[in-house]
Protein backbone atom coordinates (compact mmCIF):
# COMPACT_ATOMS: atom_id res chain seq x y z
CA UNK A 1 0.00 0.00 0.00
CA UNK A 2 1.41 3.36 -0.97
CA UNK A 3 0.80 6.72 0.56
CA UNK A 4 -2.72 8.16 0.56
CA UNK A 5 -1.92 11.87 0.28
CA UNK A 6 -5.43 12.97 1.17
CA UNK A 7 -5.37 10.91 4.36
CA UNK A 8 -1.90 12.22 5.24
CA UNK A 9 -3.07 15.80 4.70
CA UNK A 10 -6.10 15.24 6.95
CA UNK A 11 -3.82 13.71 9.58
CA UNK A 12 -1.57 16.79 9.37
CA UNK A 13 -4.51 19.17 9.89
CA UNK A 14 -5.67 17.13 12.89
CA UNK A 15 -2.14 17.04 14.35
CA UNK A 16 -1.98 20.83 14.05
CA UNK A 17 -5.28 21.10 15.97
CA UNK A 18 -3.97 18.66 18.60
CA UNK A 19 -0.86 20.85 18.83
CA UNK A 20 -3.04 23.91 19.46
CA UNK A 21 -4.94 22.01 22.21
CA UNK A 22 -1.65 21.07 23.91
CA UNK A 23 -0.26 24.62 23.58
CA UNK A 24 -3.35 26.17 25.17
CA UNK A 25 -3.54 23.46 27.85
CA UNK A 26 0.07 23.84 28.97
CA UNK A 27 -0.23 27.61 28.90
CA UNK A 28 -3.23 27.43 31.25
CA UNK A 29 -1.84 24.62 33.42
CA UNK A 30 1.91 25.21 33.52
CA UNK A 31 2.24 28.84 32.45
CA UNK A 32 4.31 28.06 29.35
CA UNK A 33 3.86 31.00 26.92
CA UNK A 34 2.32 29.75 23.67
CA UNK A 35 4.79 31.62 21.44
CA UNK A 36 7.81 30.04 23.20
CA UNK A 37 6.49 26.55 22.66
CA UNK A 38 5.50 26.82 18.98
CA UNK A 39 8.92 25.82 17.50
CA UNK A 40 9.13 22.78 19.81
CA UNK A 41 5.56 21.80 19.00
CA UNK A 42 6.30 22.00 15.27
CA UNK A 43 9.27 19.65 15.76
CA UNK A 44 7.04 17.24 17.71
CA UNK A 45 4.35 17.37 15.01
CA UNK A 46 6.96 16.81 12.29
CA UNK A 47 8.12 13.66 14.11
CA UNK A 48 4.47 12.53 14.48
CA UNK A 49 3.87 13.01 10.75
CA UNK A 50 7.09 11.16 9.89
CA UNK A 51 5.94 8.23 12.03
CA UNK A 52 2.49 8.17 10.38
CA UNK A 53 4.05 8.25 6.91
CA UNK A 54 6.58 5.52 7.75
CA UNK A 55 3.76 3.38 9.13
CA UNK A 56 1.74 3.82 5.90
CA UNK A 57 4.76 3.02 3.74
CA UNK A 58 5.59 -0.13 5.72
CA UNK A 59 2.16 -1.67 6.44
CA UNK A 60 3.54 -5.20 6.73
CA UNK A 61 5.81 -4.32 9.61
CA UNK A 62 2.89 -4.00 12.09
CA UNK A 63 4.94 -1.49 14.07
CA UNK A 64 2.58 1.17 15.48
CA UNK A 65 3.05 4.85 14.64
CA UNK A 66 3.23 5.49 18.40
CA UNK A 67 6.36 3.33 18.61
CA UNK A 68 7.87 4.97 15.52
CA UNK A 69 7.23 8.37 17.11
CA UNK A 70 9.09 7.46 20.29
CA UNK A 71 11.90 5.73 18.37
CA UNK A 72 12.47 8.75 16.11
CA UNK A 73 12.40 11.05 19.17
CA UNK A 74 14.90 8.81 20.95
CA UNK A 75 17.33 8.63 18.02
CA UNK A 76 17.21 12.39 17.39
CA UNK A 77 18.27 13.24 20.95
CA UNK A 78 20.88 10.60 21.81
CA UNK A 79 23.92 12.44 23.24
CA UNK A 80 26.19 11.87 20.23
CA UNK A 81 23.60 12.96 17.65
CA UNK A 82 24.21 16.39 16.09
CA UNK A 83 20.45 17.04 16.32
CA UNK A 84 20.25 16.39 20.08
CA UNK A 85 21.00 19.87 21.38
CA UNK A 86 18.60 21.74 19.07
CA UNK A 87 15.76 19.24 19.35
CA UNK A 88 15.92 19.14 23.15
CA UNK A 89 16.23 22.92 23.53
CA UNK A 90 13.00 23.54 21.60
CA UNK A 91 10.97 20.50 22.63
CA UNK A 92 11.53 21.04 26.37
CA UNK A 93 8.87 23.75 25.99
CA UNK A 94 6.38 21.00 25.19
CA UNK A 95 5.31 19.72 28.61
CA UNK A 96 5.10 15.97 29.14
CA UNK A 97 1.91 16.07 31.22
CA UNK A 98 0.48 18.76 28.95
CA UNK A 99 0.37 16.26 26.09
CA UNK A 100 -1.71 13.83 28.15
CA UNK A 101 -4.73 16.00 28.98
CA UNK A 102 -6.22 16.30 25.45
CA UNK A 103 -5.65 12.56 24.88
CA UNK A 104 -7.65 11.61 27.94
CA UNK A 105 -10.42 14.11 27.19
CA UNK A 106 -10.84 12.59 23.71
CA UNK A 107 -10.48 9.04 25.08
CA UNK A 108 -13.23 9.76 27.61
CA UNK A 109 -15.59 10.96 24.88
CA UNK A 110 -14.70 8.01 22.64
CA UNK A 111 -15.88 5.47 25.22
CA UNK A 112 -19.09 7.41 25.90
CA UNK A 113 -21.31 5.04 23.96
CA UNK A 114 -19.92 1.99 25.76
CA UNK A 115 -20.81 2.81 29.34
CA UNK A 116 -22.89 -0.34 29.53
CA UNK A 117 -19.85 -2.46 28.65
CA UNK A 118 -17.89 -0.93 31.52
CA UNK A 119 -20.82 -1.45 33.86
CA UNK A 120 -20.83 -5.08 32.81
CA UNK A 121 -17.10 -5.40 33.64
CA UNK A 122 -17.69 -3.55 36.95
CA UNK A 123 -15.97 -4.92 40.08
CA UNK A 124 -14.34 -7.69 38.09
CA UNK A 125 -12.09 -5.23 36.28
CA UNK A 126 -10.81 -3.89 39.61
CA UNK A 127 -9.79 -7.40 40.70
CA UNK A 128 -8.22 -8.12 37.30
CA UNK A 129 -6.29 -4.84 37.37
CA UNK A 130 -4.87 -5.61 40.82
CA UNK A 131 -3.82 -9.09 39.67
CA UNK A 132 -2.19 -7.51 36.61
CA UNK A 133 -0.35 -4.94 38.75
CA UNK A 134 0.88 -7.62 41.16
CA UNK A 135 1.82 -9.85 38.19
CA UNK A 136 4.31 -7.46 36.66
CA UNK A 137 5.76 -6.59 40.09
CA UNK A 138 6.46 -10.13 41.28
CA UNK A 139 7.36 -11.37 37.78
CA UNK A 140 10.11 -8.76 37.59
CA UNK A 141 11.18 -9.18 41.24
CA UNK A 142 11.61 -12.96 40.97
CA UNK A 143 13.71 -12.73 37.79
CA UNK A 144 15.80 -9.87 39.19
CA UNK A 145 16.37 -11.83 42.42
CA UNK A 146 17.64 -14.88 40.52
CA UNK A 147 19.91 -12.88 38.18
CA UNK A 148 21.36 -10.76 41.01
CA UNK A 149 22.07 -13.99 42.95
CA UNK A 150 23.87 -15.48 39.94
CA UNK A 151 25.89 -12.28 39.51
CA UNK A 152 26.79 -12.44 43.20
CA UNK A 153 25.45 -8.96 43.90
CA UNK A 154 23.09 -10.12 46.65
Amino acid sequence: MGLDTEKTLNQLIIMLFVGVLILIGQWVGYGIPIMNAIPGMLIVIAICMASLIIKDLLPNLKFPAFAWASLIGLILCMPFMPTAETVLRFTKEVNFLGTTTPILAIAGISVGNRIDEFKRLSWRIVIISFVVFAGTFFGSAIIAHIVLKIQGII
Partner: peptide
Protein backbone atom coordinates in the same frame (compact mmCIF):
# COMPACT_ATOMS: atom_id res chain seq x y z
CA UNK B 1 -3.39 10.69 16.56
CA UNK B 2 -3.47 12.68 19.81
CA UNK B 3 -1.29 10.01 21.46
CA UNK B 4 1.60 10.58 19.05
CA UNK B 5 3.07 13.71 20.70
CA UNK B 6 3.24 11.72 23.94
CA UNK B 7 5.15 9.00 22.10
CA UNK B 8 7.61 11.60 20.86
CA UNK B 9 8.06 12.96 24.40
CA UNK B 10 8.85 9.46 25.73
CA UNK B 11 11.62 9.14 23.15
CA UNK B 12 12.94 12.61 23.94
Amino acid sequence: LALLPLGVKYGL
